[in-house]
Nucleic acid binder design. Structure first.
Lengths: 200, 200
DNA sequence: CCTTTCGCGTACCATTGGTATGCGAAACTG
DNA sequence: CAGTTTCGCATACCAATGGTACGCGAAAGG
């Protein structure tokens, strides 16, 4: 790691571009923001931008990765605070609903992400940050006999999709009890998967 | 309704633009296809296009509506073939997984839709075509005591999101048993919501 | 048959993502 | 410390795209 004045300024410029890109992408969507606006907000020019990123898409990829890592860390922290593996799953899922409540997370990670990068790449990035934790938690619970033995992949995607859509809906819903109701419904769905729930 | 040569040609041109738009949007995504390509494929010019649609976005809105109505009709038909309300729900949900398997449905309706139109408008259109059926089916089952009494909105979004994500995953998954496994997991989740499942 | 309507083609414009090139200061080198 | 290289960045420019203004020619209406 270099520590000269040059390397420092370089990193500062890169961080500013990522920060302003995140702010603008969240506010106006990927297609609604031009490079001119981004570089102006960052106080640089297009020449500087293309020195740091190959394309507008590359900047979005960087922003999305940062958002996903932030959400993943928040969820993982909440889950790790629980002792019981089952409670880790429930807490992690419920935390996800609130961690993705911020508008910038919504638009970048849940709405524009799949369309801009393509679903496959978006899925791969999500897998690396948060979905992997979900799958691992499910596997542990299956191995320990808490959950009925079954393939984890379908379950992971069903739950992941359910939480994503619920988070988007909650952001625009006016009802005060919607969050609690959703948490209740989600908890009920998770509980239903248990081997001792009488289903299966 | 006029029936002259002129009105007929007009409708023909409009249908061709919608058809080619759907084909190209599905193949390359909304941002990946230009108006020039669309009008060339339809055998007309941009002048004709803007005589029928206000913008590229308006064409996409028309295409998306058509796709959603097709999926909604397919799901509703399968559900209506069942007598028992509970079986209508299960059959409808399972049919959704196969009805959205076509690549054009995936990209237009599930990936690009929310990003291009914005999540709110996309949700409103989805509500009008398929999600409304789901909500109605859930309400019937709650009223008849099959499902535990609970708010339907959170449940609708959780299930809708789960099915959307599962459909996208299934399209790219290589495993032969993935579809069956997903249907099993989805059925298990639905069954868990029943008032007599011991949960809640 | 003469006028009006209108579906559509042609020519054009503004903006956007992306590139080629030059400059000036920081970082090596003797 | 002078000379040279490196490199972060700015300027000027290009091709393509969504969108508009306007004109033509055939069908619709009297």
């Amino acid at each position: 790691m270099k520590h000269g004045v040059r390397a420092e300024q370089r990193e500062q410029t890169r961080r500013t571009l990522l920060a302003e890109g995140r702010r603008l992408f969240a506010a106006k969507g990927y297609a609604g923001v031009g490079l001119a606006e981004i570089v102006a907000a960052a106080g640089v020019t297009k020449g500087a931008f293309y020195h740091h990123f190959d394309s507008k898409l590359a900047l979005f990829r960087g922003v999305l990765t940062a958002v996903q890592e932030q959400v993943g860390a928040e969820v993982a922290a909440a889950a790790d605070a629980e002792k019981d593996p089952w409670q880790q799953l429930v807490t992690g899922c419920l935390t996800f609903l609130t961690a993705t409540a911020a508008p910038d997370v919504q638009r970048v990670m849940l709405v524009d992400g799949p369309a801009v990068l393509g679903w496959a790449e978006w899925r791969a990035l999500d897998e690396a940050s948060s979905a992997r934790h979900l799958a691992e938690a499910l596997e542990v619970l299956i191995e320990s006999g808490v959950l009925a033995r079954q393939p984890v992949a379908p379950l992971t995607h069903l739950l992941s999709g359910a939480m994503n859509e619920a988070a988007l809906w909650l952001a625009g819903s006016a009802g005060d009890s919607d969050l609690d109701d959703t948490k209740t419904a989600l908890t009920r769905m998770l509980t239903a998967l248990r081997a001792d729930s009488g289903v299966g």
